[in-house]
Every structure is written in structure tokens, then in C-alpha cells.
Design a protein around this nucleic acid. Structure first.
Length: 226
DNA sequence: ACCCAGGGCGTTG
DNA sequence: CAACGCCATGGG
């Protein structure tokens, strides 16, 4: 598949998703730090559970790196109990806050200043920040062109035969970044739509009756099996 | 009583 | 590097 036809295919699917589901309004956060905290808190837990944790932190005045660092572990852990792995995530929030205060002079502008791949490598050293979280932070808090991949994204690509074999996270990210126009809105909305589709439609309706791209064209079809 | 969510880390072989 | 176990809530 040539680069050009892949780009056309990806954009065609994007338009169909957008028309069917509407803008997903990601990421739902008022500040960059709130977004980053949310990225850690939603790991392997429903967004509703993560949101409760964020709301509790906000009410307690703990939604800043300074406050997170100053507060005792037990207090944070209590506020974010609904996020499931609350002891781990308390450490992760403190690690992120320490990174901001100690390595970025407490400045989020400083934190996102530099070449994107350099920033990504630095973020990945923070405990609790893996590839998906790093890319979410880069894209949704930093307005950087880093495409977010995840399990939904991989299943999506495989089911439509866009990629084959066992593509790994970095390959999938690179694939989108190589074939999509370098556009923040597109990166932002596409990831959100893929996740929405994967969680709410593709999984709930395995017969594909309601899939907006179930018969995209003659050669591209959903190969849903599981 | 199950199932699984908007993962990541540390430890094995 | 793959395959685990661990972390340990809440809604369906």
C-alpha cells in the first residue's frame, strides 16, 4: 500500500468516525497539570473512576505540583482511592510533580520546550509515565504532534487489515505519524474517536451492524473475529 | 459472583 | 524481548 493511498484511507475512516460519533472533546481538563494528572489516574481504570479522583484532588486544593509534593502520601492516596492503584498512583503523581518542580523549574512552558522526541525520552524516565501516557501528555497538554496509540488502536488497524502481524506500540505510533497530515486537531480527535469506537461500538456490537466503516470499500473490511 | 476499564513496573526465563 | 504477577476501585 503506497503512502498516499494509506493517507487517503486513514482520512476517509476519520471522517466517517467523526460524522458518526461527533467530536469527543478530549482531553476534558481545565489546566495542563489537571490533564497530566488525569493521564496517570486513568491508567487501567474507567474514566469515571479517574474523574472522581481528579475532582477530589481539586476540591482539596491538591491539583498542582507544589501541593502534591507538599501533601503526605496518605492524604493523596485517600483522595484518589477511586482510581484503583492509589498507592502506586500517589507515587506517580509525586514523581511527575518532582519532575516539573526540579527539572523544569516549576514551569510547564519549560517542560514542553524542546524537540518532541527529546521531551518524550525525558518524560518516559518519570516513574508511572509509559509510552501511552507520555504521548497523551505531549499531545493533549503540550500541543505536540505525538500520536497516541493503545490497545484499541492496534485492534482497529488489524481488523481493517491496515497493518498486519504483531505491530508494537512504537511502530503503530510511527505509522500514523508517517501517514497523517501534521495537524494537532486530527491527532487529537482521531485517537479519541478510535477509543470511543473501540470501547462503545466495536466491542459492544461485534456483529458490526452499527460500525460506520464496516464496508469502507471493496478491499477494506472489518475482519472482526474475537 | 463475575467482568473489565482511556497502563506501567519489576521480575523472570 | 515475551510473559507473566502485581497494584487493589467501582459500575455493569
Amino acid at each position: 500500500m503506497s503512502k498516499n493511498s494509506t493517507t487517503i484511507l486513514l482520512l476517509k475512516i476519520f471522517r466517517k468516525f467523526l460524522k458518526a460519533y461527533g467530536p469527543r472533546k478530549w482531553w476534558p481538563a481545565k489546566t495542563r497539570f489537571e490533564m497530566m494528572a488525569g493521564a496517570l489516574l486513568t491508567q487501567n481504570v474507567s474514566w469515571s473512576n479517574a474523574k472522581k479522583a481528579i475532582d477530589n484532588l481539586k476540591k482539596a486544593g491538591l491539583l498542582s505540583p507544589e501541593a502534591i509534593l507538599a501533601a503526605p502520601h496518605e492524604l493523596i492516596a485517600d483522595k484518589i482511592r477511586s482510581s484503583r492503584f492509589y498507592n502506586q498512583k500517589t507515587k506517580n503523581l509525586k514523581a511527575l510533580s518532582g519532575f516539573i518542580m526540579n527539572e523544569c523549574e516549576g514551569s510547564l512552558d519549560k517542560m514542553f520546550d524542546g524537540p518532541i522526541e527529546d521531551l518524550r525520552k525525558r518524560f518516559l524516565k518519570i516513574k508511572g509515565v509509559g509510552r501511552e501516557s507520555a504521548d497523551c501528555i505531549l499531545l493533549y497538554a503540550g500541543k505536540k504532534l505525538s500520536f497516541v496509540s493503545d490497545a484499541y488502536t492496534r485492534r482497529f488497524l488489524l481488523r481493517y487489515g491496515i497493518l498486519e502481524g504483531q505491530p508494537e506500540y512504537e511502530q503503530i505510533r510511527a505509522f500514523f505519524m508517517a501517514h497523517l497530515p501534521q495537524d494537532l486537531y486530527l491527532y487529537n480527535e482521531y485517537h479519541a474517536l478510535i477509543d470511543y469506537h473501540g470501547a462503545r461500538v466495536c466491542q459492544a456490537k461485534p456483529e458490526c451492524q452499527h460500525c460506520p466503516v464496516r464496508n469502507l470499500d471493496k478491499t477494506t473490511r472489518c475482519q472482526y473475529t474475537a
